[in-house]
């Protein structure tokens, strides 16, 4: 009973230490735990595979540094897949800091691939307005982005000479940390222009997008670090997300164990109200 009471009143700092250890140790000593690929991640992969070489893919970097640990790795994996397939990539952002994160992602890509700006990819930068930006892109991309991120006239870029509006885009990948993001792309690009939209998002926002997935409004979804690791597995290029999944799994295990312990101690102490009469924080209230 003493152990149960100790468990019920455990100092939260002990939990913090255990979670920290469960995150740090696998980062230092990788366990190489397998990553199971879900159908929603595979659907995106298959769609990119099915596109003819040289197709145009729009990648929206609609997130900020706060969401980067989860969303950035999936962006890198997706870009690698596009460039492996020789697709052309148009980058833009509905979030201000997304455009800068795209620059950092493309810096990695240009190190790995022989890419020429303006021919293989363009970065149109950030535009405020969310849904209105997407809707206007349905009429003309150059009108919405008269200049790219570096200030060059969009119309002068070779890649953009072939792309006038969203109709010329074969696939949209919305990397999203909120709204504007996946919801805006689904609402406008999919519902209004019937464009194929895939999504990558933070884990916390993933559950709200499953209805879109079920109805086919989203063709696939990468949710959180796990989604990123799945895509890295699919493109056979394990990177940051795969490395970090060991920590994720071990931390989840620790949390699950403590949830089970907490519930067991709660139910035991609830049956014996006198045992919990210490008034310590975390102890269940006595039964009425």
């Amino acid at each position: 009973m003493k152990f149960v009471q100790w468990l019920a009143n455990i100092d939260r700092r002990i939990l913090f230490l255990l979670i920290a250890a469960s995150v740090i140790v696998p980062l230092l000593v990788p366990l190489g735990m397998p990553v199971k690929v879900t159908p929603q991640a595979e659907a995106i992969y298959e769609e990119v595979e099915a596109l003819p070489s040289g197709s145009t893919v729009l990648v929206a970097f609609d997130y900020d540094p706060a969401a980067a640990p989860e969303v950035h790795p999936m962006g890198l994996a997706f870009l690698r897949h596009c460039f492996n397939k020789k697709h052309k990539v148009v980058i833009m952002a509905l979030w201000p800091q997304g455009a800068q994160l795209a620059v950092s992602a493309m810096a990695e890509m240009t190190d790995e691939y022989d890419l020429e700006y303006g021919r293989d990819y363009v970065n149109l930068g950030y535009k405020a307005g969310g849904d209105i930006v997407i809707k206007s892109m349905g009429a003309s991309i150059a009108d919405v982005f008269p200049r790219d991120m570096a200030g060059r006239p969009t119309a002068s870029l070779p890649l953009m000479k072939k792309i006038s509006s969203l109709n010329d885009i074969d696939l949209i990948m919305a990397l999203s940390a909120g709204d504007p993001g996946i919801p805006a792309w689904v609402r406008v690009a999919n519902a209004l222009f019937q464009k194929k939209v895939a999504g990558g998002c933070t884990a916390v926002s993933a559950p709200q997008f499953f209805p879109y997935l079920q109805t086919g409004q989203l063709l696939g979804l990468l949710g959180g670090l796990k989604g990123a690791a799945e895509y890295e597995t699919l493109v056979e290029r394990p990177d940051a997300a795969t490395r970090r999944m060991d920590s994720q799994s071990i931390a989840h295990l620790v949390i699950i164990i403590f949830i089970i312990f907490a519930n067991i101690s709660y139910f035991i102490l609830r049956r014996r109200p006198e045992a919990s009469s210490g008034g310590a924080p975390g102890a269940p209230p006595p039964s009425p």
């Binding site: 740090i24 640990p69 884990a203 916390v204 959180g224 994720q248 949390i255």
Partner: peptide, 14 residues
């Protein structure tokens, strides 16, 4: 999913 997201952020910092 929320737990997963928060742990991911912690992993990012670590």
């Amino acid at each position: 999913y929320t737990v997963m997201a928060r742990i991911s952020l912690l992993i990012g910092r670590m």
